[in-house]
Nucleic acid binder design. Structure first.
Lengths: 156, 156
DNA sequence: ATAGGTGCAAAAGATTTGCAACTGG
DNA sequence: CCAGTTGCAAATCTTTTGCACCTAT
């Protein structure tokens, strides 16, 4: 990344690397603090903002509109399928969608067409678990997951 | 819609019908007030929240994560191509994406897969206008459009 | 030395909620 | 009548900013 190499930036990068799935700035900060790292929430926000600008992370929004970040694979931007229950995520092949977007661009005369695609569902683990009495309870919504499920998605 | 038929609900529905493009709760409220309608912002939020729950509107998020609403065509949910400059929107054919999403669901074992797709670009009008010196200035971002462009998208 | 980075406290915004007053059916 | 609606003020919550103080380079 462009900026200076500070202890804090390194910590954010490292914490991000330890996450398989999407995390919010707040979550990442909480992890860092829990890991005895001294860093301000503001700094985490700024580091993630910069990383986003540099293309170092992929971003999605949670149901409340908040940003969730995930380190971007080396091979460029990707789209993900995210479990609404446990928060686990996996990149999906989106060639078709990319082509579709290009085609729309050509047909409509719009320029600089960009696309956002988010897939959410319930992963095998989550919908297999016998709690299928109606709608699953844990949701991919910050308000309902003050630790459960999503936790498993990061290393230490 | 389910609830009671009050003057306010009717006004919201009507204002929404007069909009071709996506509007925020705040914008809709401003329009209503400008139109001499007496209605509280809170009420507009509640009406839109209810409409969303009933499937009466399509929703997208602006760059800041805020919700933007648009009356849903009678033939079910759609995806849109929105101009980042003037805010105009048009439904696009997304059959391919729907199928793609279904296929992903089948391949991954995820259940209840839902998708969000947003296409943004610069419409013919906006990128034809000679202001092509570099990046267009007006953006599909609430912070940069305190009236220009987007205005044209609603009737009256 | 010095531009860039930090972090606290405060600001900003969008949306929600408590609650008492109101009203459609 | 009375459960559903309203609207104002106040509360939430996430993200941004002002500013004085640090620190890689």
């Amino acid at each position: 990344m462009g900026g200076r190499t500070t202890r804090q930036r390194r910590a954010v990068l490292s914490a991000l690397a330890g996450c398989q799935d999407f995390v919010s700035a707040q979550e990442l900060h909480a992890r860092l603090v829990a890991d005895a790292q001294s860093i301000g929430l503001t700094t985490v926000y700024r580091a993630l903002r910069d990383l986003e600008a540099e293309g170092g992370v992929d971003v999605v929004r949670d149901e409340a509109g908040g940003r969730l970040y995930r380190r971007r694979p080396d091979d460029g931007h990707r789209h993900y399928l995210i479990c609404r229950c446990c928060g686990s995520s996996r990149p999906v092949d989106s060639e078709i969608v990319e082509q579709w977007a290009d085609q729309i661009a050509a047909e409509t005369g719009f320029a600089a067409v960009e696309h956002t695609v988010e897939l959410t569902g319930l992963c095998a683990d989550c919908h297999t678990t016998e709690d299928q009495e109606g709608v699953p309870q844990c949701r991919w919504d910050p308000a309902h997951q003050d630790s459960p499920g999503r936790a498993r998605s990061c290393a230490s």
